[in-house]
């Protein structure tokens, strides 16, 4: 029986590892490659930690299995020693197995700092590249205007999105902190330019939500009372999943939305279309370029 148990404990880590190895092939893995530069760095970090932990896992489980087999064979009848090995520990070993993990852990800790900084620390935001986007889409902005292109307001249970409207001369207005009469609205459908860092202002109308773009590895809580800027950069022009990751009530799972990354022209065209739809008065000959207030 004891051999069965030895095998049992040796067997399960093998199953675990096999499952993990099979996982990517069965699509039990990340929802696609990270689709943003920051996401790729997060993935790299993940894989690095995965390597370290996998080696540790295999190592410790191997040793565990070994000591079990050793213990089982030592208790076979007729083994040399009647008593177990009498040892209260080894100072040297303790030092080794304290300092080696310490070094590895500290390495992990410091290795990740700049990724974190880039994601969250304001000074590390790619401000220059964001401003280049504003140039390209002809946004009419003052120096202190928000870097955000849209304001995403979470509420139970949907994402309400507010874009700035257009000026009379066709340029895009800057996003104001307060709603403006010219603002354009959408729900559960966030469109932003691709291949460049774009920023949104995240807020919530009621309880706490969390803005989660799994394919871009972006997650940020929307905290009641705060307006939190977040930036992300989608490589490809396609639509990405957007969901809520913080329990926000019974309909938490319902906050199904999408983020569409598209070219600058498509983005402007999308806003134009929103403007047209929003000014729909169902009279065919109505000039749809009217500046609405």
């Amino acid at each position: 029986m004891k051999w069965f148990w030895c095998l049992f404990f040796a067997f399960w880590p093998i199953v675990a590892i096999v499952v993990c190895l099979l996982a990517p092939g069965n699509n039990w893995w990340f929802p696609g490659e990270a689709a943003s530069p920051l996401g790729r760095r997060i993935d790299d970090l993940f894989y690095m930690i995965l390597w370290i932990t996998s080696i540790t896992f295999v190592g410790t489980q191997l040793v565990l299995a070994y000591v079990l087999f050793k213990g089982a064979s030592d208790t076979e009848p007729g083994t040399a020693n009647e008593k177990a090995w009498f040892s209260h520990g080894s100072h040297k070993l303790e030092v080794i197995w304290s300092s080696v993990p310490a070094v590895i852990l500290l390495f992990i800790a410091f290795y990740q700092l700049d990724v974190w900084a880039e994601y969250r620390v304001k000074d590390a935001f790619p401000r220059k590249r964001m401003e280049a986007v504003f140039e390209r889409i002809h946004q009419d902005r003052q120096k202190n205007d928000s870097l955000a292109l849209a304001e995403v307001t979470a509420r139970q249970f949907e994402w309400r999105i507010r874009y700035p409207g257009f000026n009379a001369d066709g340029t895009l207005k800057a996003l104001m902190p307060d709603p403006q009469p010219t603002d354009l609205y959408a729900v559960n459908d966030l469109h932003l330019p691709a291949s460049a860092p774009v920023m949104i202002n995240l807020r919530t109308q009621d309880v706490q939500h969390s803005f989660f773009l799994p394919e871009l590895r972006i997650k940020q809580d929307a905290v009641p009372g705060l307006v939190i800027p977040i930036w992300f950069e989608a490589d490809q022009q396609r639509s990405y999943q957007l969901l809520c990751a913080e329990l926000c009530g019974w309909g938490h799972y319902k906050m199904n939305a999408r983020f569409v990354a598209e070219s600058d022209e498509q983005f402007i065209e999308y806003l134009r279309q929103l403007e047209r739809e929003q000014n729909e008065d169902r009279v065919d000959d109505a000039p749809d370029t009217d500046e609405e207030e």
Partner: peptide
């Protein structure tokens, strides 16, 4: 350890 790494934890 995955969770301790902040950027990974974000995901």
């Amino acid at each position: 350890i995955f969770m301790a790494a902040v950027p990974v934890d974000i995901y």
